[in-house]
Design a protein around this nucleic acid. Sequence first.
RNA 1: GCGGGAGUAGCUCAGUCGAUAGAGCAUUAGCCUUCCAAGCUAAGGGUCGCGGGUUUGAAUCCCGUCUCCCGCUCCA
Length: 517
Amino acid sequence: MAQEDLLKKIIAHSKEYGFIFQSSEIYDGLSAVYDYGQYGAELKNNIKKYWWDSMVRLHENIVGIDSAIFMHPTVWKASGHVGAFNDPLIDNKDSKKRYRADVLIEEHLAKIEAKIDKEIEKAVEKFGASFDEPQFRATNQRVIANQEKIDVIKKRFVAALEADNLVEIKNIIEDCEIVCPISGSKNWTDVRQFNLMFETKLGSVTDEANIIYLRPETAQGIFVNYLNVQKSGRMKIPFGIAQIGKAFRNEIVARQFIFRMREFEQMEMQFFVRPGEELKWFELWKATRLKWHNGLGFDPKKYRFHNHDKLAHYANAAVDIEFEFPMGFKELEGIHSRTDFDLSQHQKFSGKKMQYFDPELNENYVPFVIETSIGLDRMFLSILSNAYDEETIKQEDGKTDQRIVLRIPPELAPVKLAILPLMKKDGLPEKATQILDELKYEVNCIYEEKDSIGKRYRRQDAIGTPYCITVDHETLENNTVTLRNRDTMEQERIPVEKVKQIVVEKTSMTNLLKKVN
RNA sequence: GCGGGAGUAGCUCAGUCGAUAGAGCAUUAGCCUUCCAAGCUAAGGGUCGCGGGUUUGAAUCCCGUCUCCCGCUCCA
């Protein structure tokens, strides 16, 4: 199957069978926002449980928190999000290229600067050892003229940035006659502000001073609670804090289904370690996280590491775990060695000591941090694209037949068991309901009596239900049912009393957790 | 934001030259058969994305607009 088609099919299938709906669909939808339906919500919860239990339950030194989405605005100044991600953007209408308006102006300034440098270079050659640069800068007419230009532009530019005056920024670009490097034209759009973070107002009275942000990452909720957790939990380094929660990014465009959404969910763990030991832990978490993915039993070739050559200013090592989505290998999880950047920043901005006293070393330090951060929605999509299968079946009479089956790992499947009376009469529905009433306390069950048995099996395949039991006349005689396996379509006859044991055993999260521990 | 494509029933789509809106599947009810979808009968379901214009008359022609898809752009 062509890969583009696969994504389309997954989107259609997700909608048809109640996994994912577009947000506000009856109002024409809301771009890049999606809702999880009845089976989607179940699957998502199971993924969360797999992650949470493997992190928090299986590691004595990792605890989980649930911090608020709203945080003090200074958090985002400290983290660098306020300064670094408010970019004024401008498009050239001819080349269709987009630029950061501030970068265009800075490059223009650099060009003038280069002219001055050239003058100085020439002068150095001319005057040799007796060259006096400050004096030359103060007297040379061309240098003075260019320096004046720079000063004037800089002054306007700084004032415009401070006042958030986008019109003035465009005026500067026009006045400087800055051209697009590709088209060479000055045919610019207006300057628009790109804000990564969603803003909202705290309090019922609208007031500029009360702007707060919807968090663009959950990590900061962990960092601001680092001291609370460390002290109240008497945590000793190395230790980790895990969290699952929503984050919000106002992307310019956000497409490819749930791969990039404006509102999304992250599963993050920040692991605090001794300075100098971070790279050892980085390697350990790389291996641990890949093992977690492979625990699901999908083709290992679908996962790969991608090393970051260009590191963010706060990181000294970074790697992505990429998954082969229908649209190619894309980031699924990031593992970053974040140094002591975040805690140090918060120490600086809050004035609170973020240091840890290490009794073994008998010294204080700001811990270094290894972060593992995985997109829950991306994880969901990776499971769907791994699981979606169109299978051609050869029937006994030689005809071929197609079935669509979601081969979701049984431990994560939204519904574990379907209970089906073979016929809607002769007391079979009553018997089936009886069984349902017992088993619904153990696993998520579905009861269905409509349509032929084959049709019902196929419907369960389509939502990935690993097991179906069918109640027939023999059940009434000897209390046995047929147990039908989703993947093999094979059936076996078993006593009703054994159903619980078999299904619980095959679908329990414990299976996965034991594999990855 | 730019370029291209699309929007008719829950889904997939047809709808001729402008004249009462169609099919298959799905849904609901009933009947029959009963262990791997597509048996029979009946029923329900449409502001033809939205708004305007031309016309006696618009799903169809014109203009605008919204949403989705693909590509570009952006992406810690």
